[in-house]
Structure formats: structure tokens, C-alpha cells
């Protein structure tokens, strides 16, 4: 994060992940995703009733590249919880199915609908 001074997008990203408990950097918006991988993660969070901020990287080229450098992660979507990078589409999918995502939300005081999370797991057994 030492590049903050040199990369102006970092300030925007830092402000977003500080101001919101759950932030999804994605292609498109939570109501209109523009990519299947972004759609999957946004869909899981929506279904679980998580209140999250969606940042559309397609709307800002500086953030689109900036978030990859900021997280040292080459792909979109990227999920942040309480300012910490959690992972991309594969990791969020695995964590949803294993129950680790529930634990992460519980540990961080993020409210979600546990019954809906169970419903996802039952449907994917």
C-alpha cells in the first residue's frame, strides 16, 4: 500500500473499503452485472441478504486496473470485508458452500440470512 501516493485510484478504493463493511468490486452493478463471474458473487450476496456496496470497475478505468494492483489479484470480481481482501469468484463460491463465508460474516458483525445460505448449500450438494 506504499503506492497510495502515486496511484490516485488507491485513495478511492481505500475510501470505499473503509466506509463500507462489505464491498464487491465487479463488472457491472449488483442489479445489472456484466460478467458471469461477477454475477455469481453478487447473486450469492443478494440472495443471502447482505448489505454490500458494489463498485462497477467498468465505469472507471483507473479503478479497474487500480484494484488489481491494490489487491495484487489479477481478476474481477474481488470481495472485501471490513477492509480485508477475501477473494474472487472461486474462493467466494467455495467459502459459501463450506460455510466459511457465514463464519467470516459472523466474526465481522455483518448481518445476513442464515436460512438463505443453507438453502444455497442444500441446492448444491
Amino acid at each position: 500500500m506504499t503506492e497510495t501516493a502515486t496511484n490516485p485510484a488507491f485513495a478511492t478504493i481505500e475510501a470505499d473499503i473503509k466506509a463500507n463493511d462489505v464491498v464487491l468490486f465487479m463488472k457491472g452493478t449488483k442489479s445489472m452485472p456484466q460478467c458471469g463471474f461477477s454475477a455469481r458473487v453478487a447473486g450469492v450476496l443478494n440472495f443471502m441478504g447482505v448489505d454490500f456496496k458494489d463498485v462497477n470497475v467498468l465505469a472507471d478505468d483507473a479503478v479497474r486496473q487500480g484494484i488489481k494492483d491494490f489487491s495484487d489479484w489479477p481478476t474481477i470480481p474481488q470481495l472485501y470485508v471490513k477492509g480485508e481482501f477475501v477473494g474472487g469468484c472461486d474462493i467466494i463460491t467455495e467459502m459459501t458452500l463450506s460455510g466459511e463465508l457465514d463464519q467470516l460474516f459472523e466474526q465481522n458483525g455483518v448481518s445476513f440470512d442464515k436460512a438463505k445460505a443453507e438453502q444455497i448449500r442444500e441446492a448444491n450438494q
Partner: peptide
């Protein structure tokens, strides 16, 4: 960690990602 594992693979396959491969779904 999951993040570390993915970083190991992504960094190994970075040249392929830059040249051709658009998306890797990793397990």
C-alpha cells in the same frame, strides 16, 4: 490460504493469462 494458493497459480500462469487465457476457474 485460499488466496495464497490462487496467487501461486496465477503468478505461474501470468504469461498465459496475458497472452491468451481470459479466465481461470481454480480449485
Amino acid at each position: 490460504s485460499r488466496v495464497q494458493r490462487q496467487r501461486m497459480v496465477m503468478s505461474l500462469l501470468k504469461p498465459e493469462m496475458e497472452a491468451r487465457v481470459h479466465a481461470l476457474s481454480l480449485s
